[in-house]
Amino acid sequence: MEISAALTRKQELARRNWGRWGGDDERGTLNLLGPAEITAAASLVRLGEALPLAQELDRKTPTPPRRPAPAHFMHRDGGDYLRSGDPPPRAQFSDDSMLLALHTATHVDALAHVWHGEELYNGFSRETVTSTGAHRCGAETLGPIVGRGILLDVATALGADVLPVDHAVRVEDLERCLELAKLELHPADIVLIRTGWWSACAASESTFAREPGPNLDTACWLAEQDIAAVGSDNFALEVLPSGFDEFVFPVHELLLRDCGMPIFEGLALDDLAQRSIYEFMFVAAPLPIVGGTASPLNPLAVI
């Protein structure tokens, strides 16, 4: 789709869900995940396995240049007892801390993360996001995320281990994935898109500047399916560069701000793909970081 047509489609979806769940709503499309959806997702569990979908966190975790890398500090270890010169007590313990940028590794973007003009999701003022945190649509408002997860393995569907850096994932790519998996997309689904990018590409500054991913037209299509959330195994979900001069992250703007749809980034999806698991119970519990614009995650595919 041409840029002008994609922008027109985006405008038609603008404010799609504003007021849908009330004027004070801060959860957006996660409201679609009610008791019926959770119960249906639980019925997908057959093997009794929980597969983690998160990257490991340490000082070597790939991090964009503008964000600090994770830093892990030990406050107490076995050496502290030796240095004291006293006989060690029967019960000894270790203690540590981690400094972590919230938009690092596997995480979920809260709805306060992106806005344009004067408003973020649901018409809340941009002035609600201050140096003390997001006073609307912060990470603490997301709550548990449980529903039917769908893996759309675009890389494998297109016969690749990893998509080319300039590949914009198209609607027909996602439809091809659904066809190969013999599945249909339903409202309230949680869609995970595999590009192969994160596991295949070395972490470098260019990794965070260019990547394959859904373009704006594809994001519009996903929003029209009324899904609950979307994520991918790359840095920023969407194809980079976006191809738009006026904004760098049009997919973020559409999903987070216009539609109230949380975004998962940095997912580890290779295990699911290698086992050809395309439908599962998805479980994630964002940390209730008051005023946070994102939360680290260890999401699970329960099969």
Rank of each mutant, 00 (worst) to 15 (best):
H107P: 00
V230T: 13
A155F: 11
A223R: 04
C177I: 06
I190S: 11
K10F: 02
E119R: 10
R16W: 14
E118Q: 11
A202V: 11
T63P: 10
A54Q: 13
G85V: 02
A41Q: 01
A229L: 12
E119K: 14
R170C: 05
Q92R: 09
T132F: 10
S97Q: 06
A209W: 06
V191W: 12
I145H: 02
L267T: 14
R90I: 08
L255V: 04
T207E: 00
W197D: 11
A42V: 04
E238A: 03
L272K: 08
M74A: 07
F249S: 15
A40R: 14
E2L: 07
A54R: 07
G149Y: 10
R59Y: 07
T61W: 01
A203E: 13
T218C: 14
T104P: 00
I145R: 02
A202P: 04
F73R: 15
L99G: 01
M261D: 00
S276M: 03
P144G: 09
T106G: 03
L51T: 15
G291H: 03
D161V: 06
E179P: 01
S4L: 13
A91V: 11
G260F: 01
E56T: 10
T61R: 11
L216T: 01
M98A: 03
H186R: 15
L33A: 04
A202T: 12
E12A: 15
A14H: 05
R176Q: 10
H113M: 13
H113L: 13
P70H: 10
D189T: 04
G78K: 01
L267A: 04
R126N: 14
E253D: 10
F124L: 07
D24T: 06
F282K: 06
E205N: 08
D271R: 14
F247D: 13
D95C: 05
D245L: 08
R15N: 13
E2M: 08
S242I: 03
T218F: 03
G28V: 06
G117W: 00
L44W: 06
H186P: 00
G19R: 12
G196S: 07
A285E: 14
C137F: 03
E172A: 12
D77Y: 13
A105C: 04
